[in-house]
Design a binder for these strands. Sequence first.
DNA 1: CTGTTAGCGCGTTCAC
DNA 2: GTGAACGCGCTAACAG
Lengths: 343, 343
Amino acid sequence: MATMHDVARRAGVSLSTVSYALSGTRPVSPATRERIEDAMRELGYQPNAMARSLASRKSNVLALIYPAMERGLGGTVAEFVSAAADTARAEGHHLVLWPFRTTQAPEIRDLVRQGMAAGVLLMEVALDDDRVDTLQDAGIPYTMIGRTRDVTGRPHVDIDFERTTDDAVAHLVELGHRHIAFINHSTESRDAGYAPAHRADAGYTAAMRSRGLEPVSMYVDDSPHAGRAAVARLLDTEPRLTALITMNEIATFGVVAELQQRQIAIPDAMSILSIVTSPGVGDMSNPPLTTMHSPGAELGRLGVLKLLSQIDESRPGTPDVLIPCLLEPGRSVAVAPGTAGAR
Amino acid sequence: MATMHDVARRAGVSLSTVSYALSGTRPVSPATRERIEDAMRELGYQPNAMARSLASRKSNVLALIYPAMERGLGGTVAEFVSAAADTARAEGHHLVLWPFRTTQAPEIRDLVRQGMAAGVLLMEVALDDDRVDTLQDAGIPYTMIGRTRDVTGRPHVDIDFERTTDDAVAHLVELGHRHIAFINHSTESRDAGYAPAHRADAGYTAAMRSRGLEPVSMYVDDSPHAGRAAVARLLDTEPRLTALITMNEIATFGVVAELQQRQIAIPDAMSILSIVTSPGVGDMSNPPLTTMHSPGAELGRLGVLKLLSQIDESRPGTPDVLIPCLLEPGRSVAVAPGTAGAR
DNA sequence: CTGTTAGCGCGTTCAC
DNA sequence: GTGAACGCGCTAACAG
């Protein structure tokens, strides 16, 4: 491994000149700059990241904590990670994932204190999350992807679940639907304080009530079988149902299968609107589902920028932001049966 | 942030003594050791990882490259990551994930050269994989989780697809099945050189032929809908079918749904054996699927140990290893219809 | 068993 | 525009 010293000698300049040529902190004449660059190329020089961050007292690593390794990374998270990594790179940083469980807040804190990262991106934030408190107390730069119950003074970017569920209900109501059920994640996730389940439920309920409609919301396990069972129960208790909003990809597979088996036509007899989905899931069903797609990439980008603004005081601050999911028409939503004409 | 210097002063010892007390490289008397530990505690001392690896010329970071961010992480990978992280920690290292696409081999190489990691774990290795060549040429310690076409001199741990498929066929044949089809991943994945698709297909085919049976293997997209279509086609072309081996979790959902819709009883009329699955997927169907579970955790552990042995010459070498998936009985496999009595 | 000291590779303040 | 020199926090000889 060639060092800066080697480059300097080969280029016939001083060590610091090489440093300046590299960082651009100080003007360097085009001639010497070229000589330096040649030397670097010839030697295959790579600056030593450790020495650099030791001397500069700053790291260019951003750590993304993704705790739900047990369940794996969903498509939404994948989009998020890709965008976050690209943004970090564009800003001269490196995004790395640290596979820590939610209970490992102290480990996360210590790693940052050891200089392993300049700041932390927290995913899968629960309504009450120890990690947030720990990082806040330690004065470590962080940004939540998601939100705790109370967000005052806590930098975050998140999906706007309230707006998304309201948009979903509004879309269906415009098409004449009056009896719309909501299929959420499992009761276990709700009880564990899984924020999306809470916020979406609250949003859906409010959206229905505000339109004078009766909410029917269900918590369903993430499995096709549970999805089928949920449909069976719903049709039983609410026969007038004409539309379903689902926020549970795996269960939605079962929902579709059960409806098909019962010869309930999608979308003519039953509309399905799958919200907070990852890319591609809509096309995995037949007919392709109408979805509201998570703003994963946008959140990744904004999350990184927000974190960088926490780390580097000189950067412009970025606002906390909530982004709704965007409607992607498929063929699983139609005018409510019995509704006159088009919308 | 307190430094070692601060600790030394507070404990009334020399700086190097603190270093030795920390690393254990040299004996330190219990008395002074205690004083040092007290001082560290009182100051909330955290060793600076950058300075340490700069001085020692070694990093304690292991990078796991996971390229399939496009598709997200499956459950198998999640098991792998958890075990790998735990093993790394137990060995005094840190596992971090680097989200790089397969085309970014040079970036990976450069990051290691910059000292950002001591070695690299490669996942989703294709039959022909640029990353492997790049790392090998650069002399960077690495271990494949998976295998290229040619594995001579290329450290790896992987699923034993040949053995797994043979075990699967053997299990079904013992139960009297003679007409057994195989549902693989998509043709696209195969054409992209996705190694599991190739190896499992070859293994299944050989396993059938060696028993005088006719292989019927299909490449199916990873979607419930494609799974349903595959079943329809299979029943059409091979009506004597009594068992299916699937290596495609999402498609399997559709397979089950289609069979149910056609009133083909699982497992009485059709056995389903889902191989290379992640934990929990078996229970997501009804009846719960009989599966052959990927040795994710074991691969994670062995992969890390193997990488460490590449990094540290003084460690005992570990052999390349192939581990078959393990049968986990569910209720989707039974004696072939028409088979007299039990096995 | 402990202390002293010379680097590790680079950033950065000073003088020139 | 350039170079010399010091220090970032720590490891690892080298001396006792």
